[in-house]
Amino acid sequence: MEKPAVKVDNVSVMFNLNKEQIDNIKEYFIKLLKRQLHFNEFWALQEVSFTIEKGERLGVLGLNGAGKSTLLKVVAGVLKPSMGTVMVDGVIAPLLELGAGFDQNYSGKENIFLYGATMGYSRKYIQEKYDEILDFSELHDFIDVPVKNYSSGMRARLGFSIATAVNPEVLIVDEVLSVGDAKFRKKSEAKIVSMFEKGITVLFVSHNTDQVRRLCNKAILLDKGKVIASGTANEVCDIYDEKVNGRNKSN
């Protein structure tokens, strides 16, 4: 049997929630002397397990604070789980807050190479992809301008173009299909669908059940850090819709 693309096994993440974050020595010692160093434990994820086979598209649903972003961070390798293991086979492209890796003083062109290197690609490889990235982003006139002068839509367009041009094997999508104007939105959704056809594995987070039904074939539902439902996209979306509507009714 082929290795799964993503295997999340019994993952739990605990945060220490301070009433106030201490980030300097002065306060640390004052609190230490006054014995006010309290830590509250907070479990953002509890014993979450799932596997995504190659080519599968998993939707992650849940209300705010359910642990979706924490889960994505764990899969992306940014956050180390307190317990459990995560295994990912292949190159991950996290489409989270596009353009987070840009340097504001650097031009668009230079940022393409920087962002590519952040994802582990060589200058030469990005050079080959350069025209494709530029064409998709439609930023020909602005490519030598520092990114700090870009609008947020332009920044997101450039980020999206780079992240999708490098042919990743696992794509983590966090509501980014809502970037840019309607025209670019259509284009980016078409791009993602074309990547589906190439057999890319996707982890997709959204509040929009219509989008999840359309783009995913499997889904899980998170609530307070636990998986409370998993199955085909349609089944889980029905449960989620019911939950949301039920809550609205009771209000």
Binding site: D103, N105, Y106, E110, F113, L114, G116, A117, T118, G120, Y121, S122, R123
Partner: peptide, 21 residues
């Protein structure tokens, strides 16, 4: 070794930006 390109790019960026403005 895998991230040597990132190391290169950041060094290049820091040196470039130091003189740019």
């Amino acid at each position: 070794y895998k991230y040597r390109f990132l190391l290169q790019e950041i060094v290049r960026k820091n040196v470039k930006l130091q003189y740019r403005n």
